[in-house]
Design a protein around this nucleic acid. Structure first.
Lengths: 336, 336
DNA sequence: CTGTTAGCGCCTTCAG
DNA sequence: CTGAAGGCGCTAACAG
């Protein structure tokens, strides 16, 4: 606190600009003076003021992260920390920090993003999970600000946008097909909020697989769950009020966990009476009774790739864009 | 990008300072001109540049957050998002953002913190979980920088430092006593990394309860676990190689989850052959088989309180300090 | 109530 | 290879 570039300059008997150049390790400063300046910096305990640096250099070294919903909900899903871990891993090697703007609802979220971006606090943004026709995406796109989305920006029809995602239609298909192959007859589904592309896609995959197998989907066995375990629990209860499916596809392990308990509460045993399958392969899956069959979606990779794309986009500019698909992998356990 | 305070000033026919005052809603500007200026701001799409603001005003609006270990591990513990949620909740109402500096190990972590603080990117820092004789704490303290720790800064002997914590000795005592009261005879313990105060304290509580009950602690039934489920699993296996305790205290639910599986793999049934108790009351506890008895530690409250203390410390200055103890609450389920 | 004047700490031409 | 000068966008006295 307090020692500035001028102080160093004086101490090293050079001009401030020279010190500035030494900080950036400019090649056009002699080793001699570099040494002397560095010495002075160390002795005085000099640290460049980040704010002043960004003010002139026009970049902050910060990457903003936006969560997709009321933060309270998202924080508690294991996907978030995994993706964050991937993002961190790459930002770490680029000396960039992560800026996160707390928001409690969609409106606040929008404001938060705008503030972050317009006030110049970040050089780029990663959007975790996309809503259908996401207005944040269109906005960022329209002002030409560097961003990447983890999730599919469909159906925006915007070219040149960076994103990473699983093939969620494929995942939906895969798990449904798995149940079909296992001989399950009446297969229902528990989806999440259908304003999110990920849920739409997994549902679509389910439908495709059912159709391909010549099975008709039964609305009585389809439910949209509220958040997490309790949501899955209630959704399952609703389905069971309509009858007894032989198996249930859930679009998320947390739903599956709730659904399993609902089944048990109603006296059904898993997988004998009802088979259950989830997606995400969260840490506890293997510790559940029965261990939950699920799909590894590589959240860490998703985050890592997102960060890489974003960094490139920032460096290269608006003419750069790319998208990456990461395929899921079925993890067989004992729940179906 | 690009419209500055001067542009607004021109458009509204006032001086830049007036615009600045309008932004801060200074009481000494007439409603008249405020209106005119705001109009101009809107029309031009003006947003104050945060970097320039911080440069002059000497505060950034950012709070730094430091995780306690190689981030990779900590991110995956449910405690982290819960605490973060609490922190966010209060920062949100103060228009402050959260800054994370990704770090992969203790050295990077230290550097990251120093950079954050010394380069003036944050106005304050919250340290999640404290190491014994934590050097980050002593450093921040020595330079008089606002910070708060979630965890106990013991045994630093520093007065005037802000912290929030559970009473972890009490928690250790509570769960051990609970097992004793249930009639368990040979009670072992699985602790975590003993460089962390939280683990030391919970172990201490265990010892106190054992002693108070006239029981001797048996080293053969005590193990220190590596991270999370697998750590708990392996620790339990080690214990079982030494014999069969009647119950195990674990200092963390994730250890408990692993331990349960280890018991099961060895043919023991929970709670009949071996009782298990955990701490943290993480979301899945109630969905495990058997549902895990645990201690609610109120991670959300911990985070919330930490943020509140920090904000006060920032506002009031170094003469302010406070600490808060949040008591745990036993949540009885079926694992012991 | 409003404008003028100096910076905040650093970077970046432009000279030399 | 290095220094001087000007400015990034905003704020904070100090005038008036």
């Amino acid at each position: 606190m307090g020692v500035t570039i001028k102080d160093v300059a004086k101490a090293a008997n050079v001009s401030p600009s020279t010190v500035s150049r030494v900080v950036k390790d400019s090649p056009r400063i002699s080793q001699e003076t570099k040494k002397r300046v560095r010495q002075a910096m160390r002795e005085l305990g000099y640290h460049p003021n980040a704010m002043a640096q960004s003010l002139t250099s026009k970049n902050t070294g910060n990457i903003g992260i936006m969560l997709p919903r009321p933060n309270d909900e998202e924080f508690n899903h294991p996907f978030f920390p995994e993706a964050l871990r991937g993002i961190s891993a790459v930002l770490r090697t680029h000396d960039r920090d992560i800026l996160f703007s707390p928001a409690g609802n969609e409106v606040e979220e929008r404001r938060a993003l705008q503030r972050m971006v317009l006030s110049g606090k970040v050089d780029g943004v990663v959007l975790l999970s996309s809503r259908i026709s996401d207005e944040l995406i269109t906005w960022l796109y329209s002002i030409n600000f560097p961003f990447v989305v983890i999730g599919n920006p469909r159906p925006l029809g915007l070219e040149r946008i960076c994103w990473v995602d699983n093939d969620n239609v494929e995942i939906g298909r895969m798990i449904t097909q798995y149940l079909i192959d296992k001989g399950y007859e009446d297969i229902g589904i528990i989806t999440g909020d259908l304003r999110f592309v990920v849920n739409i896609d997994r549902l679509e995959g389910y439908k495709q697989a059912m159709e391909a197998a010549g099975k008709s989907t039964n609305r009585a066995y389809m439910a949209e769950a509220d958040v997490w375990e309790d949501g899955g629990y209630n959704a399952m209860l609703r389905i069971l009020r309509n009858g007894k499916p032989s198996a249930i596809v859930t679009v998320d392990d947390l739903f599956a966990i709730g659904a399993i308990r609902a089944c048990r509460d109603r006296g059904y045993s898993i997988p004998y009476d009802i088979g259950i399958i989830g997606v995400n392969n969260i840490g506890v899956d293997q510790y559940l009774m029965p261990p939950l069959t699920s799909v590894e979606i590589y959240a860490y990779e998703l985050g890592k790739t997102a960060a890489e794309l974003l960094l490139k986009r920032i460096e290269i500019g608006p003419e750069y864009s790319d998208c990456v698909i990461i395929h899921g992998r079925l993890v067989e356990r004992a729940s179906c």
